[in-house]
Every structure is written in C-alpha cells, then in structure tokens.
Design a protein around this nucleic acid. Structure first.
Lengths: 226, 226
DNA sequence: CCTACCGATCGGTAGG
DNA sequence: CCTACCGATCGGTAGG
C-alpha cells in the first residue's frame, strides 16, 4: 500500500506502466469489456434506437468514460454490427442445439421427428431468442436493420440465411402434407412476422407463457391432418 | 419573363415584400405547407428513422429553410405526432369506408357479409394502408412508436383502439365457428404481426400483389368450415 | 483504457 | 416563412 507512492514528486511519468503484464487476465478483461459494451449497447439500442443512443450513454452503462468504446470498436456502427453479429451467432447456435436435442430425444424413442414437432421446436426456440432472458440482441437486429451499412449487412445476412434455412424443409413438408396452406416462402415471412412482432407487445410479467404462445402459433398456422 | 428583373442593382432591399397578400391563397398554402411537411417527414422518418432525420432534411424536402418547420409545428416531436395522427385518421377512414362499401354491396345482393368476407375486407384494406401508394404514415407509426412522448401516445392510442375494434367481433365470430383456432386476442396480435411485418420485405415491383397477399393470409390463418 | 479536446451538426429561437 | 444565430450534444481522436 505504501511502498511505491511514498516519495512525492519522485517521478512525473504517467502511471500506466505500473501494472504488471499478467497476460491471461488482460485477455480475459479484453473480451469482458467488449462484451460489456455490446450488452449495454444492445439494451440501449433496443430501448431508444440506434440513432437516439449516444456512445457516451453506452460507455457509462458499461462503466467507462466517453472515449473508451472507441478503443474496442472502430466506430458506433461497428458496435451495432457487433451486437447484430453476436445476436445472430447465438441464435443460430441455440437453434441448432434445440433441433439436435429434439432429434436425439426422438431417436431414443426410436421415431423420427414429425414436421409438426420440428416446427414446434423452431417456434419455441425463436420465441425464447426474442423474448427470453438476455434478449436484446435479436430485437435490435430486427428493428435497427436500416442503421447498418451495406457492407456490414451482408455479413449478418449470411447468418440470417443459415438461420432461416432450417425452417424451409419443415415448412415445405407441412405444405406437402396439407397442414400448411399457402406458398411456403410467403408462409415463412408471415410466420416470422407474427413471431417477430411479439417483441412489440409481449409482457413477460403478465399474459401468456412462451409455451402458450408456441401452442397458439401452431394452432393458428397449421391445419389438422386430413 | 423580362419585365421585373431587367434593371440591375435597382434596389438592395430584400425582395420579401414584393408578393401581394392574396389572402385565400395564403390560407390554402398554410394547410398545404403543413401537409407538405408531414409528407416529407413521413417519408424520411420511414427511411432513416425519427432520430436520424434532421428537421433541416425535412425542411429541404418540403422546399423550406431550416427554421420554417417550427412555424408549423412546435417541435420535432409534434411533427412526428402529426404524422402518426394523420396516418391513423386516414387508415381508420379508409377501413370504415371499405367495410361500409362491402356491407352495401352485400345488401344489394340481399345477403349479410360472412365473417370470412369481413376479414378479407379488413386484411385487404390493412395491406393497402401499409403497402399501397402514400403509405409512409402507418409504417412510421408502427416502427417509431417509442420516439413519441407519453402524452402524444395516448391520443394516437385512441385511434388505434378504434381501428382494432372493428376486427374484434369478426375474429370472435370466426373463432366461434371453428374457422379460427386460438384465443381471438392473441390471434389478432399474431395476425397484425404477420401483416405489419410485410413492410420489412414487401417489394411492390416484384413478388405477389396485395390480392395475393390477402388470399395467402386468409389461407394461412383460417380453417375450412367443418 | 482515461483526459482533454475538436469540428460538425442539431433542435430551436428572435426578430422581422 | 426567412435570416442569423445560440447552446448543447455528438462521434471521434491524440497522446498518454
């Protein structure tokens, strides 16, 4: 405590080089701070919108000073792109895991998953991604799309395409069996609309649970097998 | 063409007072200028968002100088409120007219409109309001809701409630007949989601017509009568 | 990562 | 409705 700074005016050089290197902790901190910025940004972007949120607000929410976000991100847009990229990666990861998990459970019971069950898993996971805990990233991606530059958009678009690709064969199968009327491409857009819109009205405290919502969604969109 | 400005340097006084009063035209202009501002604002708000649009951009798009919008609107938020209010009034007017028109046509053929036909009229009109010509106002209302102050929100909310009120008995009837599964309140939110989301992907040049979209929407959401 | 700062832009106003 | 202007805020940077 009193070792180094005991002698006053010993040196005027900046104190930066005082801390020991501690390499591994630096790396962890680096990722932490970057993550903290993205979390804070996602929350604020969702609440106020990208343009109405200042980088100062984000810095404060992440416990930094006004200039520090630019040490981690080239500019404000890159921060938005980071949020969207991170959100889509996570959503895609969770979707894959959910589908794999359901398929494995089905295999244990020696039966293939029906298209209807597949859709239930996809819808349920999508609602979780939209409305569950830590669910600011995807709403930001959905509703701040126009604020992203063209170049950054294409990167996120690849992840979006992968995410939607899992839905296509499921909807096609349901259409083939007569359980889903209407062209599958349009049906997917309408289905995503119905789900994505829920971030505008869903109140986690009141109203239905995510299971209820999943149930109702399937009831609304699917016909009984003839 | 060459009458007034022929003599150079005749006077250095500003030219402002040259135009004659022409009272009636001034009045018309007043409404025109206000309307022009709201149209320009709606277009820009939709394209870039409320916060990313400057009042200078709006003034320029309406053919004015930077300070002039504040002669017509108290502040930028009031301009947004004006856009939303105007949009909802128009949408409600058109919805009422569409329903009355369909009811009249039905009466001429000596039959009451079925709930299914009512929903078709409502959906078709809603798509027109969302995607048809001059359709910037409602998308702005839908997607810039958070930028509105609480006080202004409640005014628009009354119009929104009236607009949605027309859908309630129709959806209830369809639910009672078994054509619509799922609780009518949730069904309305999902249906609006499916439709409102179309402003994110609809391309008027390509893809389906509004009639096609109406058709597919009903196919997706309604079951056949048993 | 902080401090100190810059140039640009923005909403809004006075005064005509 | 325009001109001229103001105070505040914002994204971003240099230098440590």
């Amino acid at each position: 405590m009193d070792t180094d700074n005991a002698q006053p005016s010993e040196t005027d050089q900046p104190r930066r080089s005082r801390g020991r290197p501690r390499k591994s902790e630096d790396e962890r901190d680096d990722g932490n701070r970057r993550q903290a910025l993205m979390r804070a940004a996602a929350k604020l972007f969702r609440q106020y919108g990208f343009a109405a949120t200042s980088t100062r607000d984000i810095a404060t929410a992440a416990g930094m000073r006004s200039g520090s976000p630019f040490y981690h991100f080239e500019n404000k847009e890159a921060l938005l792109a980071g949020v969207m990229h991170e959100g889509m990666q996570s959503a895609l990861r969770r979707q894959t895991a959910a589908m794999d998990g359901a398929a494995t459970a089905g295999a244990a019971a020696r039966q293939t998953l029906s298209a209807r069950e597949c859709l239930r898993v996809l819808v349920r996971n999508h609602l979780e991604v939209l409305l569950g805990p830590d669910s600011d990233f995807i709403p930001v991606m959905l509703y701040e799309w126009r604020s992203l530059s063209e170049a950054q958009r294409s990167e996120v678009n690849r992840l979006k395409a992968d995410y939607e690709a899992a839905w296509v064969p499921v909807l096609q199968a349901l259409h083939a069996s007569g359980e889903l009327k209407g062209e599958p491409g349009l049906a997917r857009l309408m289905l995503f609309g119905a789900l994505n819109w829920s971030v505008q009205w869903f109140d986690p405290g009141r109203q239905a649970s995510l299971d209820d919502l999943t149930q109702t969604t399937l009831q609304l969109f699917l016909k009984d097998l003839a």
